[in-house]
Design a protein around this nucleic acid. Structure first.
Lengths: 337, 337
DNA sequence: CTTAATAATGACTTCGAATGCAAAGTATAA
DNA sequence: TTATACTTTGCATTCGAAGTCATTATTAAG
């Protein structure tokens, strides 16, 4: 077997009695090699245990076969689901995932440094704290980017989005139809674009219904922060009848806090809606009323667009938007006051 | 700014009036360069927007700065949590995560092919379907591996594990103390080592208590499979009073199925225990009795061991085992029959 | 059986940083 | 001042595959 030194294309060439070029060509499709030579090369390669060195290939082809995915993790159950699908789609396109974790805005610079040096073919950014000001740097470095659920003015980067406006308006419609008048909006961290957008849309939807001055509480998209925020709110205010949460994980936190520590039944005393449609909200004890993002379609499109931009970098940036699917769970009921 | 061509160390060298070697050395610590030269180089590098090309460095140093993490995703909530921590620890050691997803045994060969060609510095394997027979191949390719929750006979690879035996015995102890006699063991997929181990240990623990012929149902570690398995079992058997599940996610599935479709209250009519201690089981509606793995310590150790093996490949493989922490939730009660 | 067109092949160069080695520079000791 | 030790520096080579180009082998056409 192969002892200490790696088997290179030269080794294979020597044994097979051909040139290194022939070996290289044998491992590519659509290259000018006779079947005879290719067979011979592949046979001896197999015999010697030769595997092409991807690093050397990257250097000369200037393609790394890696896509950087900038995700978050700590808090929001939606990230693992999206990451998993992205990984699958990218594998099909023969791209590997180089994973970066961004849980607070401070980490971004470090991640960018690594992205430049690693020569990734492209980037998919889904982290909540991803700062869209850094998008220009990608352009300078000529690295295609696809933003996930984050649109940027002027279309300077492609993005795939769920239509938050439609989704949140539908949720508010339902609450309104049930006669709710006392609302609380539970927003995400204020340095997150998605958080900001969803919060503003909730306020706007409520204003459209003639409901003004809605109080806003803040969390960080995590379960604990949902509980904490609701607990804090209840300590100084009377109970609302409906809570519009900027994501599912916080919504579950609110439900648990309401049931455990506030003596409120959901949905009898309190209606709660979330956003995302993560798997866990469909569990029987919660059955949250929420909007499910079409993450299969969104991740597929994100990868398709990215791969296209890698192949033809001069193609214009594009934006694709999907409607979310309203899921009528069991956390919304008629207003009681 | 930099237009179309990448800035290389030669460009910096020319502008700074030094040799390419000097530039290279300026970017490394502990190299023989005068402070004056280093400053000059770093200044012009900054000016030209030069970033060292990691690919070229990988080729010559034979270190990629990447660790392959083989994870699963579909089903078990424990993976995202572990993955996130691994990523954090590896970043601290200046290693990037190259992510591979293994959701069924068939995908392994493809992943291995990629691991060889990408010249990763090391591998951390946590996927349930990771087949320990492939460990020898890593040795042949001289790539250090750390197994997560998977020990292999003969210590041919390092591993960090949670002491499943202790944990499962403690869980069974509790159930036994509550007087349970009618058990169901819900096992994971039979091509998974962890699944097999936990199942056997549950049976062993029960046998030690004098309880024999315990029925076994099978799932795939997912919520849905937990529901399905319990539903199937109930269709042809009378209800057990206690279910020992091989992971938390399935345990939650069992609880939901019992409550929703079987008219069983948990814990009054049915006691359920899980394993792992994923975040979601602490949510108020579940509060599962389970064993929490010390994933902070385990991931830290996995990374430390791997980094050590990368630095000194001839060091012997090591095994580190932690006890899990019993979490007394609210899903276990006295036996009713 | 030529001639023209096409396919297959190998020699050589390239990608960009790191490093062994020898030469040149600087500091220390006698 | 000279001999010696140590530090800086640049040259040339290396990592391993891929691509360019010129040459040779093969096939098709006339």
């Amino acid at each position: 077997m192969n002892k200490h030194k790696r088997v290179t294309s030269y080794d294979v060439a020597k044994v097979a009695g051909v040139s290194q070029s022939a070996v290289s060509r044998a491992f590519q499709t659509g290259r000018s090699v006779s079947d005879k030579t290719r067979e011979k090369v592949l046979a001896t390669a197999n015999e010697l245990g030769y595997k092409p060195n991807a690093i050397a290939r990257m250097l000369i082809t200037r393609r790394s076969g890696m896509v950087a995915v900038i995700s978050s993790s700590r808090v929001n159950l939606v990230y693992p689901e999206v990451l998993s699908l992205l990984n699958e789609r990218l594998s099909e396109k023969n791209e590997r995932v180089l994973l970066f974790n961004l849980d607070n805005a401070a980490g971004l610079d470090d991640i960018l440094e690594h992205i430049w040096t690693f020569q990734v073919d492209g980037v998919i950014a889904l982290a909540a704290h991803f700062d869209h000001k850094s998008i220009n740097k990608f352009k300078q470095h000529q690295i295609p980017v696809v933003l996930y659920n984050r649109r940027v003015a002027g279309h300077s980067a492609s993005s795939v989005c769920c239509n938050h406006e439609q989704g949140i308006f539908e949720l508010v419609d339902i609450l309104h139809d049930f006669g709710h008048k006392d609302y609380l909006v539970l927003a995400g961290p204020d340095d997150s674009d998605v958080a900001q957008e969803r919060c503003e849309l909730a306020i706007k939807a409520l204003t459209d219904k003639g409901i003004n001055d809605v109080p806003i509480a803040y969390g960080d998209f995590s379960y604990q922060s949902g509980r904490q925020a609701f607990s804090n709110y209840m300590a100084t205010h009377s109970a609302p009848t409906a809570v519009v949460c900027s994501n599912d994980t916080m919504a579950i936190g609110v439900i648990d806090e309401a049931r455990e520590n506030c003596g409120l039944r959901v949905p009898e005393d309190l209606s709660v809606v979330g956003f995302d449609g993560v798997n866990a909200v469909f569990w029987h004890s919660y059955q949250l009323t929420t909007v499910k993002q079409p993450i299969e379609q969104m991740t597929k499109a994100a990868v398709d667009i990215l791969v296209e931009q890698i192949a033809t970098p001069d193609n214009p940036a594009q934006l694709r938007v999907w409607s979310g699917a309203l899921v009528q769970g069991k956390t919304v009921g008629p207003a009681t006051n």
